[in-house]
Design a binder for these strands. Structure first.
Lengths: 129, 129
DNA sequence: TTGACATATTCCTTTATAGGAATATAATCG
DNA sequence: CGATTATATTCCTATAAAGGAATATGTCAA
């Protein structure tokens, strides 16, 4: 099977470096036209438009027509799933490795219940120990 | 050009849902053999081994040989770049849209200096306004 | 309407998967 | 050693993607 579609998953959408560049450009909350973004990125206009299309599909950016231009703005809320996913792991590096084990085990419950795509058919997986 | 290699970028590594499942399984800080992971995931052993190979290449997991088994454990530090990248956007949803604009502009400086892959050849991009 | 400008879309090529099947490698046991 | 178990690797196929080139679509101005 091929990779998951990039237009249906925020994680895939932000996996593309150029798209992260676009997101960073929009991070000041202002609206940018495609042309302005093209000037800032080493990429042709069609490519930028395609990336914007992906970001739009996933909900990371919003468009607004202004004259002949289309003004794109960041909809950062769409990035929240990424933040929510990675946040629990923060404890692993925020505190230096003292007694990480116990904290990690306490934390496990807050991470595991995110099967996302795979339904684990609920069978007990022979955990270690 | 094709997509960036998944074996050289943490963002691409975690873009695969099954790999996030594996990461979640390892989140309790314990070591799991490949077989134990296979029992927990609806995926054949070779596929799991390949995913583990990707995660290992990117540094998200570590391996340790124990008898005929190989015990995998999470190296969450490798996820820090993702956290660092998404954290600045947290303000967008943590506070309800009151005066986000000004905060966003203050924040811009902390986000923009992450060109990652693209060297923006330093030219001024015609910002809006 | 025509022309210029801004952006999106289509077509095409190269590349990179993800996963299945079969096989190779490694380590333990008798 | 030979058999068994555990894991990795190779081969293969279907799918998807990124970007370039060319073109279509849409909007404004004269």
């Amino acid at each position: 099977m091929a990779r998951a579609s990039t237009t249906s998953d925020v994680f895939n959408a932000i996996a593309e470096p150029q798209r992260r560049v676009i997101i960073a450009l929009l991070a000041d909350g202002r609206k940018y036209s495609v042309g302005q973004l093209v000037d800032s990125i080493r990429l042709a206009q069609p490519a930028v438009s395609k990336h914007l299309g992906v970001l739009r599909t996933v909900g990371i950016v919003s468009v607004e027509r202004v004259g002949k231009s289309r003004m794109y703005s960041l909809n950062a809320n769409a990035l929240k799933p990424v933040h929510d996913w990675v946040k629990p792991y923060e404890v692993f590096w925020s505190r230096q490795l003292d007694r990480i084990q116990s904290r990690a085990e306490r934390m496990a419950a807050s991470i595991k219940p995110q099967p996302e795509l795979t339904e684990n058919k609920g069978d007990n997986h022979g955990c270690d120990k």
